[in-house]
Every structure is written in C-alpha cells, then in structure tokens.
C-alpha cells in the first residue's frame, strides 16, 4: 500500500515537472569572433561609451533601456519599465530575433540563429559584467536546468549511498543529529513526505529561496535517493 501510494505521488508530480533541457555553456573565446557583428554599433570594455548602440559593460542584471544618456526606442524604454531585465535567457531571445522580443527596437540586426553561437557570444559579453565570485548575487554565468546524469547514476533510484553523498550538501545547514534551531530537522522523515516536500520546493510551490534553489537542481532520482537516505537516520 505504502509503495503504491509512493508511485502514485511520483507520477502526479512527474507530470507537473518541467522538461529537462541541456546545459549550454558558452565559449567566450569563440564568442569574441561573433562580437565582430556587434562592434560596428556597440562598445564593450573599460573605454566603452554610447555610440549607435549603448555600451554592453555590466549588461547582465541591468534593466532594459537603462543606460544613462542613451536615446532608446519607445519600445525598448517601455520594455524596461515593464521590468525586462537582461539575463542569459532574455539576451538569448533578443539576439536570436530582436524584433520578436522588442517589437520597435532600433537594433537593425538579423539575428544569430545557432543556439551554440549565441551562447558563445553571450559568454563573451558576460565577461564584462559583475563576477559572481566577487558579487555572489550577480547574474549566473551559464544557462542550465536539470543536471544531466550518466545512465548508471540514473539507475540508482532511491539508493541510500547516493543519498548519503547528496546529503552532504544538506548537512551544511540541517544537522544530522536532528537538532532543530533556526533550521528544521529533516532526519527520519517518511520517504514520501520528503519526496513530496522536495518537489513542492522544486516547483516553487513552497516559498523558501534556499530550498527552491537546492531542490530545483535535483533530479527525481536524486530526490528519491535523499529520501531513502534520510529515512534511515535516527534522531539522537
């Protein structure tokens, strides 16, 4: 009965889960080649200033239409006040097809169609924005979603050994002896409660930002492994 309920829960949650897409880590050196298509209008680097287009230093995390002294199209200014912020995803969409994202943009560029080419160009531009090493809240430096795991790892469903390794990350905050000060105990939770709670964080139904981040990068198998491991622990 317990097993049947567990499977039913997993199926329900799996149908809600977002599809996985592969990580696209750009190659900044290769991207510098594509910058030739941009540099007729845009500057980047220490001497950058407004030209036909605005400078692209520090663009990551910046509101659209926000460079002081630059005359934007009405359309771009409007997108900025609506909240468009430049990230990997929004830059990717804009470079793919500028008018699809900002209808009245003045940027006369036909678009860069290959996703890897765009990722490389964005990686080059990313070099001129805040580094997360120095400012941890800076925009991410690669696009990713679900971690891609080898088949042999994927086969370890509910594997407490794998769970024990993954749990080393949880143990930085959640204490193994089950103490409960400021951060709740997760020791000896029933497996299915654990799985449901983690998927609720993953889908951002539960609000806590640290847990949304941690759960958001766990696969179904990893959540199952963690649940299997924590179920074996005894509070001390």
């Amino acid at each position: 009965m317990r097993q049947a309920r567990f499977i039913a829960t997993m199926t329900l949650l799996a149908s809600l889960a977002a599809p996985a897409f592969a990580q696209l880590a750009g190659d900044a050196d290769r991207g510098e080649g594509f910058w030739n298509q941009c540099k007729g209008c845009h500057m980047i680097g220490p001497e950058a200033r407004n030209r036909i287009g605005p400078p692209l230093n520090g663009i990551f995390g910046r509101r659209a239409g926000a460079v002081e002294g630059f005359k934007y199209s009405k359309s771009m200014a409007r997108m900025g006040s609506d909240g468009l912020t430049w990230t990997f995803e929004t830059l990717d969409a804009y470079i793919d097809n500028p008018k699809a994202l900002v209808s009245g943009t003045r940027m006369a560029y036909r678009g860069l169609k290959d996703p890897q080419d765009r990722a490389d160009l964005i990686a080059f531009i990313r070099e001129f924005s805040d580094k997360p090493r120095d400012i941890p809240e800076a925009e991410p430096s690669i696009v990713t979603s679900q971690p891609q795991l080898a088949d042999e790892v994927l086969a370890l469903q509910g594997d407490p050994d794998f769970g024990e390794y993954l749990a080393s990350e949880c143990g930085t905050c959640h204490q193994g002896d089950g103490s409960d000060q400021g951060i709740p105990s997760i020791v000896a939770w029933p497996e299915e409660d654990f799985v449901v709670a983690m998927h609720a964080y993953k889908q951002k139904l539960r609000p806590h930002p640290v847990m949304q981040m941690m759960a958001g990068r766990l696969t179904d198998e990893e959540i199952a492994a963690l649940a299997a491991y924590y179920a074996t622990l005894e509070p001390q």
């Binding site: 809240e137 430096s141 990713t144 640290v210 981040m213 941690m214």
Partner: peptide, 21 residues
C-alpha cells in the same frame, strides 16, 4: 539578510547557474 547560489562544473570553471538574494 542572505545571498546564495548553486553552481555546476564546466570545462572552463565552476559556473553559477542560479542565485537568490
């Protein structure tokens, strides 16, 4: 207050993939 991020290894570096503040 708090700030945090998760990271993944790539060929080039350990790269930030998501963050909150």
């Amino acid at each position: 207050i708090k700030v945090g991020a998760s990271y993944e290894p790539t060929e080039e570096k350990i790269a930030s993939v998501s963050s909150f503040i």
